[in-house]
Amino acid sequence: MGNIEEIKSKYIRKESRQEEDQVLFQWLQDHPAERKEFYQEKDIWDSYDLVKDSKNYSPEIESRKLHKRIRKAKQTKLVVLPYIKVAAVFVFAFVSSWLIQSQYLNQEQLAHEVEMREVSVPKGQINQIFLVDGSRIWLNSESTIEIPSIFTGDERVVKLSGEAFFEVAKDAKHPFKVKVEGQTIEVLGTSFNVRAYPNSSVIQTTLNTGKITLQTKKGKLAISPGEQTELDKATGDLTLKKVNPSNFDSWKDGRYEFVDEDLIEVFKVVERWYDVELIYSKEDFELMNFSGVIKRNNSIQHFLTLLGYSIPINYEINMEKVKISKVKEAKQTKN
């Protein structure tokens, strides 16, 4: 029959047999102190059904059912109580205006079949999303992703603005597609990082494992693990180079690793990560590269100190605004 831990775990997963339920019920009666822990563990398990929407519950369909029922109830009321028809007219006017409005909305939703869900992450934060199909997405600061509430049809399509790391569950019959401005990435089951911020002139796609295909206006390109493409948004040109992918997805673990990265681009990352506005003159830092690691749970000062090691700078922090300037003379001062 197995021990009680095993039965508990089976019951939580709804895989227990009746004899086992009997044993468990008796055990709970005999051990009232364990009851809370058991139901809490079950609750953790149950709650994930909502996170995953594992039963594909559709509020739209259910809402239509409810409206039908309300309409029926309305009619019955009118027949049963004809003498208060006058009053009923007022009620009916109110209800029908609500019905018409929501029916109209429903029809619109029906036309689109599935509702798109938008997830946005503000500056200074990162978030992780689990999809119904088992895929995982890490969403970086100031990024937005659009996901359908359920995947229907032949493809799993999401839309991204900003940076995200994808771990896509394999499903050869339903290719996964990531649409960003100017390119579409087609995936069968793999992990990769996309950086497509609107305020950047390029889109970076870095592949960790598996295989992806990139579709741009100029054509298709298959990418292998360890390769990175850079799409120039203005010209549509695509360049391919070898990189160490872990440098580009470490942000999801709270670190950013830069290797000879353009300093202005680094500044943009810093602004997003620490939710600050950097004020600097472009000429001061143009054509400079930065290498180093910044951590999200360090403060902005940490980055500025790090930067100060390689370039003599002055900085001034005033709430969310940070002024940085290069020290022109040889002497180095800091406020």
Partner: peptide, 26 residues
């Protein structure tokens, strides 16, 4: 709430029906 002080059922349904469904599923 609607202007007449009644509950806005459509909105309520949208917001709560799914979590309530998964709660009942327990």
């Amino acid at each position: 709430y609607l202007d007449n002080g009644h509950l806005n059922l459509s909105l309520l349904f949208q917001e709560y029906s799914q979590p309530l469904f998964y709660y009942a599923l327990k």
